[in-house]
Amino acid sequence: MTKSVKVLLVSVLLLFIGSVIAVIIIVRKPKGTYVEIVQNNEIIYSFDLSEEKNRTFRIAGQQGGWNEVRIEDGKISITDADCPDHTCVKAGVLRSENIPIVCLPHKLVIRFADKEQK
C-alpha cells in the first residue's frame, strides 16, 4: 500500500462519511407547505399545499411532453409522465425541503419554497 493509495483511500472515506452526514441533514421533514413548480428555471405555479383542493392536472413541456401532477390531502406528487425514465413518478410524494421532485427531460422541478419569496 503506497502513500498515494492511502491518501486516495482516506479522501474517499472522508467524502463518503461527509455525504452520509449531508444526507441525514437533507432528509428532514418540511416546515412549510408552500410549494412552487418551476419549469426551465421559471416559476409557473406556486401555492400553499394545505389550502389546495384535491386535483390532478397536466403540465405541458416546452418541447412537447407532459407531466401529470396530483395534489391529494396536502401532498403533491407526479403521477404520470411521457418521459422514458419516469424518475419523477418514482420519486413519489414531495417530502423534504431539500429534495425536489425533478424531471430532467422536461426541465421540471417541484419544490418547497419560503412564503416570503412571494
Binding site: 467524502l15 461527509g18 455525504s19 444526507v23 437533507i26 425536489p100
Partner: peptide, 15 residues
C-alpha cells in the same frame, strides 16, 4: 437546467 436545485442529490449520488 441553470439551477442549483439538483445539487441536493449530490450526497446521495456519492453514497
Amino acid at each position: 437546467m441553470r439551477s442549483f436545485a439538483v445539487l441536493s442529490f449530490y450526497p446521495f449520488l456519492i453514497i
